Amino acid sequence: MFRKVKVEDAVGFRLAHDITEVNLEKKFKGVAFKRGYLIKKEDIERLKSLGKYYVFVLDEINATDFVHEDDAATELAPYIAGENIFYDEQPSEGKINFYATTHGLLKIDKQRVISINKLKIPSLPTKHSNIPVKKGDTVAAFRIIPLYCEKELVAEVKKILSSPAIKVVPYKLKSAGIIVTGNEIYNGKIKDKFYPLMESKLKEYGLKITDTSILPDDKEIITAEIKIFLKKVDILFITGGTSVDPDDNTKLAIKEAGVNIVQEGNPIQPGNNFTIGYFDDIPVCAVPAAALYYRATALDIFLPRLLAGEQITADEIAEYSVGGLCHFCKVCVFPVCPFGKV
Rank of each mutant, 00 (worst) to 15 (best):
L236I: 13
L24R: 00
R112A: 10
G309Q: 08
K118N: 13
L119N: 07
A100C: 08
A314K: 13
Y294A: 09
I166Q: 00
R3Y: 10
L307G: 02
P267F: 15
E319N: 12
L215I: 11
A72K: 03
N23F: 09
C285G: 07
P270Q: 12
A32C: 12
P170A: 02
S162K: 07
F13S: 13
K201N: 01
Y79T: 10
G36K: 13
K251L: 12
G309R: 08
T181G: 06
K189Q: 10
L173D: 06
P304D: 05
P335A: 08
V31H: 03
D70K: 09
T102I: 14
R143F: 08
K167F: 03
A291N: 08
Y37V: 14
P335T: 06
T101C: 05
T275D: 03
A291E: 03
K107L: 13
V284T: 04
A286Y: 04
E75S: 10
A289N: 02
P164L: 05
V157D: 08
G277L: 04
G136Y: 14
A155Q: 14
D88N: 12
A318S: 08
K159S: 02
V244G: 01
E89S: 12
S92R: 15
I317S: 01
E310Y: 07
Q269V: 15
F274C: 12
I19A: 03
V154T: 09
V139I: 11
T74R: 12
H128M: 06
T74N: 03
H68L: 11
L47G: 09
G240A: 11
A73W: 01
F28S: 08
K227Q: 13
E21K: 15
G265P: 08
V22W: 00
Y87E: 10
V133N: 05
T275G: 05
D218A: 09
F28Q: 06
N84E: 01
K191L: 07
Y79K: 11
I238W: 04
L307F: 00
H128K: 09
E25T: 15
E21H: 10
V57R: 02
V157F: 05
P270V: 13
R305L: 04
Y186N: 09
F237I: 05
V180Q: 12
E316H: 13
V31N: 06
E150N: 08
E199R: 10
N273T: 13
E184F: 02
A298T: 02
K52E: 10
A72P: 01
A253L: 12
K26L: 11
D281W: 09
T223I: 06
E8R: 14
G12I: 11
G82C: 04
I317K: 01
I317N: 04
K6I: 08
G241R: 07
D218M: 12
A81C: 06
Q311T: 08
V11N: 03
G82D: 05
K208N: 06
V333K: 05
L173H: 07
G324Q: 00
V7S: 08
A318L: 11
C337W: 00
